[in-house]
Amino acid sequence: MNDMNGVAHPGAVDSADAPAGASGGYPRAQATIDLDALRSNVAALRAKAPGAAFMAVVKADAYGHGMVPCARAALEAGATWLGAATPEEALALRAAGLGGRVLCWLWNPGGPWRACVEADIDVTVSAHWALAEVVAAARAAGRTARVQLKIDAGLGRNGVQPDQWPDLVRAARTAERDGLIRVTGLWAHFSCADEPGHPSVARELAVFRRALDQAAAAGLTPEVRHMANSPGTLTLPESHFDLVRPGVAMYGISPVPQLGGPADFGLRPVMTLTARLASVKRVPGGHGVSYGHRYVTAGETTLALVPVGYADGVPRHASGTGPVLVAGRRRTVAGRVAMDQFVVDLGGDAAEPGDEAVLFGPGDRGEPTAEDWARACGTIAYEIVTRIGARVPRVHTGG
């Protein structure tokens, strides 16, 4: 399989079977990606917004799940748009032969505007300089660029400020009349949709609706107007407009864990992260474990070595807190997570080198979930799955 830049990943595989190690044994670690679960999640999310088109957000290598296989599965399940953050991601989707509509939004001056125009990618304009660059790219390419205008409704990141929005939509309409661009979309992003009842939600919806009215007054007639991310799709039907943009929910992670877990929304986690024990040994009481000896054995015990660490995306913040299923029971990381490995204390339980350790998955077997890891590390489940590194092979099943 290729990465999102079209470069072959030596550890990535598309087979439904687990890859053998260099000696024909078990792999050190792997992330198993259940594409059937992803398709089911797309169906469940589409049912939440039956009147809206569906954009599958596959940025950041599909939140660590493998961009191209996940994009294909999402399209098979009824998505009609793909969402990428960077133009390089969007171009990689086209290079992989994926059709349909593709939107990208994170631009800097001098970006590959012309390449995206020529690849029929919808590009986001969030400032006057960006409109000027895409207009120049359209002239150079000799074809009309597909453009979506973004307003900053309150998030404070990308998007034009509301007081500059009327000027931008008028300028875009002028370029549209000249045949240089076609404004295909108008959009915004919530700041606190994952906090139900937050006062910013109504305020930002009002900003967006006013922006839509101003765009209409300028003569723009976009194909899609959109604002709903994962929490918006699940909990804010008034935000669905013409299109919804689920990201993390598509991968089976609840964006509002305070309201319910994945199953409460008809979702199933897509990624299961496992490793094979590299060492199992008995040690006496008073034995230090890992750097700094932050953990010392209380008595004679069995230590198991799990051969993944922060170079693989296991958070160092999980030191002493991260949950893992080993030998049929949940354990906690003993001592510090190192670059390539961490230790668990099995107490009186037995295990063998090569036995499976499950860091997270759907939870069917009593294993931790990505949300469990997020709570243990003081972060969000988005980060847990997205940070899993390239040297952990992705094995896609159901594809």
Rank of each mutant, 00 (worst) to 15 (best):
311 A>V: 13
202 A>D: 06
334 A>S: 13
144 T>D: 02
297 T>I: 07
200 S>Q: 14
9 H>G: 14
284 P>A: 13
46 R>C: 00
25 G>T: 11
120 D>C: 08
133 E>M: 10
227 M>V: 12
196 P>E: 03
245 R>G: 00
215 A>R: 09
193 A>M: 11
379 T>H: 04
353 P>L: 10
386 T>W: 12
52 A>R: 08
194 D>K: 12
143 R>E: 11
121 I>Q: 03
288 G>E: 11
322 G>S: 04
58 V>A: 00
83 G>E: 00
217 A>Y: 04
5 N>L: 15
326 V>C: 06
159 G>N: 01
188 A>Q: 04
144 T>H: 08
390 A>V: 10
159 G>Q: 06
133 E>L: 12
5 N>A: 15
280 V>P: 01
360 F>H: 01
149 L>V: 03
83 G>W: 00
142 G>M: 06
269 P>R: 01
231 P>Y: 06
379 T>Y: 08
244 V>Q: 00
319 S>V: 07
199 P>H: 05
365 R>H: 10
225 R>C: 07
102 V>R: 04
124 T>L: 15
128 H>D: 15
248 V>E: 02
11 G>R: 15
24 G>F: 12
73 A>M: 00
231 P>A: 12
112 P>E: 09
203 R>I: 06
289 V>A: 10
353 P>D: 02
282 R>N: 11
245 R>Q: 03
345 D>G: 10
89 E>M: 11
156 G>K: 13
205 L>A: 13
6 G>P: 05
275 A>E: 05
105 W>T: 05
51 G>I: 07
186 L>Q: 07
358 V>S: 06
189 H>T: 10
191 S>F: 10
153 A>K: 12
119 A>C: 09
93 L>H: 00
335 G>N: 03
44 A>T: 03
365 R>F: 08
53 A>Y: 10
336 R>D: 15
203 R>A: 13
288 G>W: 05
219 G>S: 07
364 D>M: 06
298 A>H: 09
336 R>Q: 15
388 I>N: 01
61 D>V: 02
185 G>I: 04
97 G>C: 01
287 H>R: 13
273 L>R: 04
381 A>Y: 07
235 T>V: 12
178 D>F: 06
250 M>T: 02
34 D>V: 00
142 G>S: 09
